[in-house]
Design a protein around this nucleic acid. Structure first.
Lengths: 100, 100
DNA sequence: GGTTGCGCTACTTATTTAGTAGCGCTATAG
DNA sequence: CTATAGCGCTACTAAATAAGTAGCGCAACC
């Protein structure tokens, strides 16, 4: 069994790469093309976008749509669901900081 | 209302910085000193550790313990709770990838 | 007053991300 | 045809971020 990498460590590492979560987020409503993604991410450079798309495909969080662009896989969609509670927490956190 | 930064964006940005989540994770069981954190994070350089500690303090996710080292604030602990579902998802995700 | 361990800074190097130009391909229009 | 327009993407350079290593200033203890 040697040196199992804990799943949580692996995903935190992946999600820590810049733009990864943002790209997933932008695909929440359906497929987007390479250039649409670039625009959605405020002009993110094609270099990084391409790297991220490869990375996310290898990790099966997104794939190419039959018709056009990139789409989230079932796993990718689930990840978004899992992130929802974080959204709620984030709002309280933000409010909390502003008090001080 | 001008240019509100969505809370989720802000926190994703923060958590995307390397070692941030890891440091929070390592503090889950109680306070650790600067050097203990370095060891826990496998020799993470003091430069980055110090940066992250400042960042996390400003953002009220951790603070200095009265007695020794650094501890999570209430908000920091809550963030860990929120991350638990991600852990479960991550395990399924990892298993899923290995099949192929 | 010498030693030990602490939090931390200063400095250099390596890795990651950003920015910009433009290629090769396909599809549609003139 | 050919031309022109948009696409996914690569190549190259520059800037920002992180890693690595040495060691300082301070406090506690002997």
């Amino acid at each position: 069994m040697s040196k199992e990498v804990p799943a949580i460590a692996e995903i935190v590492d992946l999600l820590s790469k810049k733009w990864v979560m943002r790209i997933i987020w932008e695909l929440r409503e359906g497929p987007l093309t390479f250039r649409e993604l670039q625009v959605a991410c405020e002009g993110l450079s094609p270099t990084v976008l391409n790297n991220r798309l490869k990375l996310l495909q290898v990790n099966q969080l997104l794939g190419k749509d039959d018709v056009r662009g990139y789409v989230l896989t079932a796993m990718g969609l689930e990840l978004l669901e899992v992130y929802k509670p974080l959204n709620h927490w984030a709002k309280r956190w933000q409010a909390n900081r502003k008090q001080k």
